[in-house]
C-alpha cells in the first residue's frame, strides 16, 4: 500500500521535539479523526473505505506513540536512526542499577507491610522523582544532538517501565487475594 505521510509529528503539524503540548495534540487528533474515522465513511465506496481505515490506523498509531513520553522518546530515537528497542539491554551506571534493585526490593516487601497499597504508592512516588529527571536529561541531550547520551537516559527509563509493570502486577495480586 502507498505510504501516507510518514512522520508522526508532521502528521499533526507539531514540532519534532520531546516537549509536546499534549492537549493540543489531543485536539488535533480529534479533528483529524472526525474526518478519517471509518464511521464517517460508512456510505462511501470500497476504495475510500480501505484507504480511510489505513489512515485512521496510522493516526491512532501516531497518537498513541506521541502521547506516551516513553514511546515518544523511543520514536525520536528512531527518527535519528538509533535502535529503539532495549529488551535485554542494561545500563552501565552502577549507582542507577543499585537504586533499581532497591526499588524492586521495596515492591517485594510491600506485600508484607501493614498497608501494602500505601507502600506501593510510596514506591511510585520515589520512582517519579528520578523519572522526571531522566526525561529532562533525555530532552536536553536530544536537543543538543547528543543522541548517544539521550539514548542512555532512555534505556534507564525503560527500567522504570518494567518497575511499574511489577508494581501493577503486585497490586493486582493483592486485590485478588
Amino acid at each position: 500500500m502507498t505510504q501516507l505521510t510518514d512522520n508522526y509529528f508532521e502528521l499533526y503539524g507539531m514540532p519534532v521535539n520531546f516537549q509536546l503540548d499534549i492537549s493540543e495534540l489531543a485536539s488535533r487528533h480529534r479533528e483529524l479523526m472526525s474526518r478519517f474515522h471509518p464511521d464517517k465513511h460508512v456510505q462511501s465506496d470500497g476504495l475510500n473505505k480501505k484507504q480511510v481505515a489505513q489512515m485512521a490506523a496510522l493516526l491512532n498509531e501516531s497518537y498513541t506513540t506521541l502521547k506516551s513520553p516513553i514511546k515518544r522518546a523511543a520514536y525520536l530515537l528512531s527518527l535519528v536512526g538509533l535502535d529503539d528497542k532495549a529488551d535485554s539491554e542494561t545500563s552501565n551506571d552502577g549507582a542507577f542499577l543499585m537504586q533499581q534493585l532497591e526499588l524492586r526490593e521495596k515492591v517485594d516487601q510491600a506485600s508484607e507491610s501493614e498497608d501494602p497499597f500505601l507502600a506501593l504508592d510510596q514506591v511510585r512516588d520515589m520512582a517519579k522523582q528520578t523519572e522526571s529527571e531522566l526525561y529532562q536529561e533525555f530532552e536536553k541531550n536530544y536537543v543538543a544532538e547528543q543522541y548517544t547520551e539521550a539514548r542512555a537516559a532512555w534505556v534507564k527509563l525503560k527500567f522504570f517501565t518494567r518497575l511499574h509493570d511489577q508494581i501493577d502486577r503486585t497490586e493486582q495480586k493483592l486485590e485478588d487475594r
Partner: peptide, 19 residues
Amino acid sequence: ATFVARRMNASVREVMAGK
C-alpha cells in the same frame, strides 16, 4: 491507490492549515 493517498495527505494538510 497513490492518487487516493495523495488526496488524503492533502486533506490532512488542509485540516492542519493555519495551525
